[in-house]
Write a protein that binds this DNA or RNA. Structure first.
Length: 648
RNA sequence: GCCCCUAUAGCUCAACUGGAUAGAGCACCCGCCUUCUAAGCGGACGGUUUCAGGUUCGAGUCCUGAUGGGGGUACCA
């Protein structure tokens, strides 16, 4: 899709301007308009030039050898565009060289822009749903990836010109909350976050675990009374020990004995029975029924416990630095969607079975049959999501609706989107599942049962502590306990964590290595922050001395250092990078860009003096140039939800 | 069983959507602080892009198959 170019800011997007020039040259030479398909690519480091036009694909039109066409194209472009200082041809590759004077103009143009990189509003609305926690346990590492992604994508869409609405669909009802509630009722003894001195979400999580403990105990108790009926199990003294033994063997990949193998099948059957027989579960289900009927005591308890959780979540969101424009609660939306089932039946998108259950037949879409209403008339997750998507559209009339949800729900969203399309919802084409991969630990998958879950609050606190230790080690701070210092530690720790999680392509499963994540060197958030702080330091000093950095002073400059050109080439690409990140819903594009820019600038910083430069225009350029790099770094980091310090 | 995702340097990740000799960081080794922040910079080492075919001027990228890893799979959310 060609983006509009304004002649006034031609220099603002060099690539765009050059593409146009190339397309015009092509049309002049070969009489065909290829403006839609012209794609310039960055020139490889080992060749001279900044942008490269590849002529191979056009040999059918040019009827010339690719290198000949490239040569003629180069000559033509140079005639028509004063941006070019020269070009070279290698095989079918036309490498376009931008003159230093042109780069100076580009910088001047960037410096005069209010917020370089940000697109004009495009008149489109996008809703981004993310976080969407359950209220029965605190947030963990997986949620961090979700929240950071959701927030960052929102920022990126905003920078790409969309009107953005960030929403959080809180799963505040259902059997899992009832489990916590029940356990609290039974074993809580009136404990509160204040009395226990723990955050509300952690307190509720504690009772969720408590429920599971008692529930398991009940199951085994019941199973012991039944095992006599199963010959393979009768001789086992303690079923719990037996299961533990088998699990251990499986984990360490030892073979099971014949007896064990034979006993596993009846054991599993018995366990499945036990899960249903255990009275605790029945009690929890009863509680859910009471909640749905609006039983007062139940609702009061539910409100109280959810209130605690929200206090806890708010604190966590605050530390994470994420925000929402609107909250949806499943307690409000769980009944939605039933009218859509009716609608679907009348449109014959759904069909009803004899038992009364309603199904969508999506076998034609390679998706099989999917239940949308139980035989007892109650709705399922899918029903609710159908209703909620209508509600969201009513609320915001979006062009795009993004769901930031883990990839274990790929199937669910494929089905949801297909159904909504079949139901004639035109907005369905704008629905997108931003599916991200699980976060693994070096020890494998996070498992709550095995206690390997990395708690979000703990992790963030650790990151801040690490930042403090590291800073102390460097001896860079006067008063390590001042408020300013604390703010810095928080900034650094969160940057390390966010950058670590965001630099990876969202859809890929990733490894969270605790040792690596707290690294502050190399391809890390703090490295980029450091580059920013470093530039700011130079700028402060220049300010004190009173050095000029205005266009009037550096505008006439015609000669740049090679490292300056490299950095300028990156800087010039920023608007496109934002666009690419928005098109692919991928903060990793921005992360990569910020790193490249910082890296390349540091090279310049190392090789080229700034404050000691005697030539006034050159000095002014280097200051203005450094300032723009700092601003762009800060902005790119902001798109990742990362703050950047003035000094560190 | 069926469906979806994934596989790139010892490890963690890139590769601008089919372009040139596949790049960074970490780890290991060697250099650089009497100059603007060394949380930095340079250099060395490291690759049959899991395997086998195919498509074309050109394939890490596309198509087919195999293998390894992960996820989902009809009254859970």
């Amino acid at each position: 899709m060609p983006r509009k170019t304004q002649t006034t800011d031609l220099l603002m997007n060099l690539e765009q301007a050059l593409s146009t020039a190339v397309a015009e040259a092509f049309e002049a030479l070969y009489g065909e308009n290829i403006a839609d398909q012209v794609a310039l690519q960055p020139t490889k480091k080992e060749f001279a030039g900044t942008y490269t036009f590849v002529t191979f694909p056009y040999s059918r039109i040019t009827k010339e050898k690719p290198d000949v066409a490239a040569q003629r194209m180069g000559e033509k472009v140079q005639e028509s565009s004063d941006l070019l200082s020269g070009f070279n041809v290698v095989k079918g590759f036309l490498n376009l060289e931008i003159g230093d004077a042109a780069w100076v103009k580009v910088l001047a143009s960037i410096a005069q822009t209010e917020q370089y990189g940000v697109a004009e509003p495009i008149g489109q609305k996008v809703m981004v749903e993310y976080s969407s926690p359950n209220t029965n346990k605190p947030l963990h590492l997986g949620h961090l990836r979700n929240n950071f992604l959701g927030y960052s994508v929102s920022q990126i869409m905003d920078a790409a010109g969309y009107e953005v609405k960030k929403v959080n669909l809180v799963n505040d009802r259902g059997i899992h909350i009832c489990k916590s509630m029940l356990a609290y009722q039974k074993y809580g003894e009136g404990e509160t976050p204040e009395s226990a001195g723990i955050k509300g979400d952690h307190l509720i999580g504690k009772y969720y675990v408590e429920f599971d403990k008692h529930y398991k105990a009940q199951q085994y108790e019941w199973m012991e009374t039944q095992k006599a009926n199963h010959p393979e199990l009768a001789s086992i003294e303690d079923l719990r020990e037996f299961k533990k033994g088998v699990d251990d063997k499986n984990k360490t990949k030892q073979p099971l004995s014949d007896e064990e193998r034979a006993a596993m099948k009846p054991f599993k059957e018995l366990q499945a029975q036990a899960e249903k027989e255990a009275t605790l579960l029945k009690e929890a289900q009863e509680m859910l029924r009471k909640w749905e009927q609006g039983d007062e005591d139940t609702v009061v308890l539910w409100k109280q416990m959810n209130g605690w959780v929200y206090d806890g979540f708010n604190a966590t969101y605050n530390t994470m630095g994420v925000t929402f424009d609107k909250f949806y609660y499943e307690s409000d939306t769980y009944l939605l969607g039933k009218d859509l089932v009716e609608d679907g039946l009348s449109r014959e998108v759904f069909y009803q079975k004899d038992d009364g259950s309603v199904w969508a037949d999506l076998s034609g879409d390679n998706l099989d049959q999917k239940l949308v209403l139980r035989s007892d008339g109650t709705s399922v997750y899918m029903t609710q999501d159908m209703g909620t998507s209508d509600l969201k559209f009513q609320d915001f009339a979006f062009n795009k609706s993004i769901y930031v949800v883990g990839n274990e729900q790929d199937y669910h969203f494929q089905v949801l989107f297909t159904i909504m399309k079949k139901l004639g919802r035109e907005y369905a084409d704008g629905m997108y599942h931003l599916s991200y991969g699980m976060v693994d630990l070096p020890t494998g998958k996070m498992k709550s049962r095995e206690g390997t879950v990395v708690d979000a609050d703990d992790l963030m606190a650790e990151m801040q502590q690490t930042a403090k230790n590291y800073t102390a080690e460097k001896g860079k701070i006067d008063d390590p306990d001042s408020e300013e210092a604390q703010a810095l530690y928080h900034m650094l720790g969160m940057a390390a964590l966010k950058y670590y999680l965001l630099r990876v392509d969202p859809k890929k499963r990733m490894l969270f290595n605790p040792q690596e994540s707290i690294e502050f060197q190399g391809d890390t958030g703090p490295f980029i922050q450091y580059t920013h702080a470093r530039i700011k330091s130079v700028l402060r000093r220049a300010e004190q001395v009173g050095h000029a950095k205005d266009v009037a002073t550096f505008g006439t400059l015609t000669q740049l250092h090679p490292t300056e050109v490299e950095v300028m080439a990156l800087l010039a690409r920023y608007p496109d990078k934002i666009q690419e990140a928005a098109d692919t819903y991928s903060p990793s594009v921005v992360a990569q860009f910020a790193y490249d820019l910082a890296k390349e600038y540091n090279r310049f910083y190392q090789e080229v003096p700034i404050l000691n430069e005697v030539d006034a225009p050159t000095l002014a350029f280097r200051l203005a140039f450094s300032e723009q790099v700092a601003k762009t770094i800060a902005h790119a980091m902001q798109l990742l939800g990362i703050q950047v310090p003035e000094r560190m």
